[in-house]
Amino acid sequence: MIVLVTLLSMAMTIGAYSLSKVVGKRYPSPFTTPVFFSTAFIIILLMTFGLTFEDYTLAKEIMTFLLGPATVALAVPLYKNRQIIKKHSGPALVGIVLGTMSTIIGAILLIKLFSLSNEILASISVKSVTVPVAVEISNIIGGDPALTAAFVVATGILGTMLGPSLMNIAKIDHPLSRGLALGTISHGQGTAQAATEGELQGAVAGVAMGLAAIFTSIAAPILVPFFI
């Protein structure tokens, strides 16, 4: 039974992803970005069949096996574009640090505005860094690991859906800046989106994701206690 469900889950995921590619090409919109479209599609299907996320877990483990190696692979575009990235290392670093600070503080202030709990505050403050690091930092500052992981994933989806349009509105068109913004705010998913815009964008997004993780792990434990 588990084998059947897992095979079905994998077929469903690959099918949804392929479909999102076709639909996204024909009707480009935030709702047809691969992760949002496919995830919504799969959740609806699972619920229709009366399945839970636990039934899907084995398929998830198998399919995400290559996520680590895929992140390592980002060194290739980074290497190919090293001259241009080196040239802009100053602006890039300032952008990543200020962007990380502003998204942490922005999230904290909005949580305060809606007077949500301190546990949510701590969990959501680290939403812009990749899951393994976010969970670690969240533990230190009093957040909940599962909640943190959910906020990180939601930030990846929403930032990737809306980021490109937001940047178009503000005329942020420098490939370096587009990659940096997506990687800093929406970690791996943002990097995946940036990579579809171009090789340079993908490369800097990968770097931004890493640096944002390091910087957040230093900044969040200092900043967050002031607001709790």
């Binding site: 990380t100 939403k127 939601a154 930032g159 937001l166």
Partner: peptide
């Protein structure tokens, strides 16, 4: 909260790095 803080971060990162 997520959209608001992500938008702030995207604009700050993008604009600061682009201007510099």
């Amino acid at each position: 909260v997520i959209i608001g803080s992500a938008a702030v971060g995207i604009y700050v990162t993008g604009l600061v790095s682009q201007v510099l």
